[in-house]
């Protein structure tokens, strides 16, 4: 299998108030090139720390992380790692550097020292990829949260990364903005073949992912297809997470003696599942 990221026995420790805390515990994980992975976990479960290790922003205390075969610990290849794994954070306001959309998107490619013509092309195509081409000369301050976040994504895409890591990019957005972002990510994944790793608190955003990981106390406690992971309703609730309301409904029905499968997530599939039961009677 072709892996873009290989994590081997990684531990991350940090010191706060003179005490050592372990944020990530002896974790091993491979991310397949071109896949769409969602990481779930409550605040403080270690998912942000893990995310920041993927592009070398955080360096593992123990173990190694290879990005496209490059060790993130090596100082001389730091830029190479950051170019391959782009990161988008929660607050779009704190990621935009310039006061004009196109100038902001150009920031990454400019830092890479590309020729002006190529930067121009990359900026235009990145804005198009996130559906923001008409805002090329707007000021980010006037845009909605979802639009700002799409600009932040464009700023990363313009560096033509292999992999996109997003740390709760939808936490501060309204439902419309959240949909915009998730749709954009699936589009980038399908059309450009960019590997996506999405960290979120919104369970429904995991619905169409290839793979869902659940983190708790610095460890991965569940790993599988979305419907497989969401079947463990009790386990998810015990680690401070939730399930989509469709799953909750099917689970509640099951508990009440209805013979339904709980391995579907979408509204249509759930309705079909219930229909089967109703017609079976």
């Amino acid at each position: 299998m072709d892996n873009i990221i290989e994590i081997k026995n990684v531990t991350y420790e940090y010191t706060e108030d003179e005490a050592t805390h372990i944020a990530v515990k002896n974790l091993s994980l491979n991310i397949e090139r071109g896949s769409f992975t969602v990481i779930l976990g409550h605040n403080g479960s270690g998912k942000s720390t893990l995310a920041k290790m993927l592009n070398g922003l955080n360096k593992p205390t123990l173990g190694t992380i290879l990005v496209d075969g490059i060790n993130t610990l090596a100082e001389e290849t730091e830029i190479e790692v950051k170019r391959r794994v782009g990161m988008v954070f929660q607050n779009p306001d704190n990621q935009l550097i310039a006061s004009i959309v196109e100038e902001d998107v150009a920031f990454g490619p400019e830092n890479l020292g590309l020729p002006p013509k190529e930067i121009r092309q990359r900026v235009d195509s990145a804005l198009k990829a996130v559906g923001m081409e008409e805002f090329v000369s707007s000021t980010p301050h006037r845009l909605s949260g979802g639009q700002k976040q799409r600009i932040a994504i464009a700023g990363i895409i313009a560096m033509e990364p292999e992999c996109l890591v997003l740390d709760e990019p939808t936490a501060m957005l309204d439902p419309k903005g959240r949909r915009e972002i998730v749709d954009t990510l699936h589009k980038l994944n399908k059309e450009k073949g960019i590997t996506v790793i999405l960290i979120t608190h919104y369970m429904e955003e995991a619905e169409n992912a290839d793979r869902v990981l659940v983190m708790n106390d610095g460890e991965i406690i569940s790993d599988g297809k979305p419907h497989e992971v969401f079947q463990n309703v009790e386990m998810l609730k015990s680690v401070g997470l939730d399930v989509p309301q469709t799953t909750e409904l099917l689970y509640a029905l099951q508990k009440n003696g209805f013979k339904v499968n709980t391995n579907v997530i979408s509204v249509t599939d759930t309705a079909r599942e219930i229909k089967k039961v109703l017609e079976g009677v």
Partner: peptide
């Protein structure tokens, strides 16, 4: 979402919560 499921089922009695749905 639970109301959406019942709409998709074509039922007239639309619940607002999971408990109601059950």
């Amino acid at each position: 979402i639970v109301s959406q499921v019942f709409e998709a089922l074509g039922l007239n009695n639309i619940p607002l919560t999971v408990d109601e749905a059950v």
